[in-house]
Design a protein around this nucleic acid. Sequence first.
DNA 1: ACTTTAGCTTGCAAAATGCAAGTGCAAATA
DNA 2: TATTTGCACTTGCATTTTGCAAGCTAAAGT
Lengths: 136, 136
Amino acid sequence: METSKKRSDCPLSQSLEVFGDKWSLLIIRDLMFGNKCTYNDFLKSAEGIATNILATRLKGLEENGIIEKSGHPESKAKILYKLTTKGIDLLPIIMEVYIWSDKYFPIPADIKATIKEAKKDKDKFVKQVSKELKTK
Amino acid sequence: METSKKRSDCPLSQSLEVFGDKWSLLIIRDLMFGNKCTYNDFLKSAEGIATNILATRLKGLEENGIIEKSGHPESKAKILYKLTTKGIDLLPIIMEVYIWSDKYFPIPADIKATIKEAKKDKDKFVKQVSKELKTK
DNA sequence: ACTTTAGCTTGCAAAATGCAAGTGCAAATA
DNA sequence: TATTTGCACTTGCATTTTGCAAGCTAAAGT
């Protein structure tokens, strides 16, 4: 897969080349909040990503330094995906999407609680979750 | 164009159905920061959106209540596009994308200043820009 | 009246997506 | 040891979306 070409110098545009599609942020969500970290974990998510699409997205996210692979401690057959610091730093963006959603969509109860916590003190929420992710 | 189907109840997923592509947020950016508000304005942006794609994106954004059309005061031939409150509320998301970009990409000087201001006091920045957008 | 501007639509080729099936290796099971 | 299962993909192919160029209609400008 060729690395996506730059359409302009606009940082928003460049960012969209990294995660501006219908799937990438969902994988990142799974890594952040879903306690998912393997290929099959991602495949099982509710949205039903196709296996070839998942493969290309994982490759793209890795090339862009958002995620990294490592061997799974309990088996050579398993691969562990985890967020890099660059990936973890996407948390404020995703948090704001959730907060926006909360205003305009009905929100499932379990997620509602997390959003409420985030809204109460955004900085605190980001620091807390980031810290947890870094120890994984 | 049929309205996009819901893949899951996840609010992030639903949000991505609204603006999770390579173009929608750029249109919103143009409306927020680019002082652009007509079809041809958007066409002229640096990324070079194709005219048919622009048309479908504008339709989608309107269907989703992010933008709305109105007649241009100085000509019947012109159409003014503007952000709704729902659209303006996307500002925190876009702001966070800019802040993330600032950490990982080289940023053009003019945008750099805006990002710096946003980082200094996020709430203030959002309030200020939102207010300006609402008076337009 | 004639040309330009604005906001699209249409046609078609190229690329991306979605679905099903298959592959190769490791690990668990019989 | 042989066989089956699980995991991480790859491949083939039909469908959908994108990108590019051209055209179209109504209003404005000259």
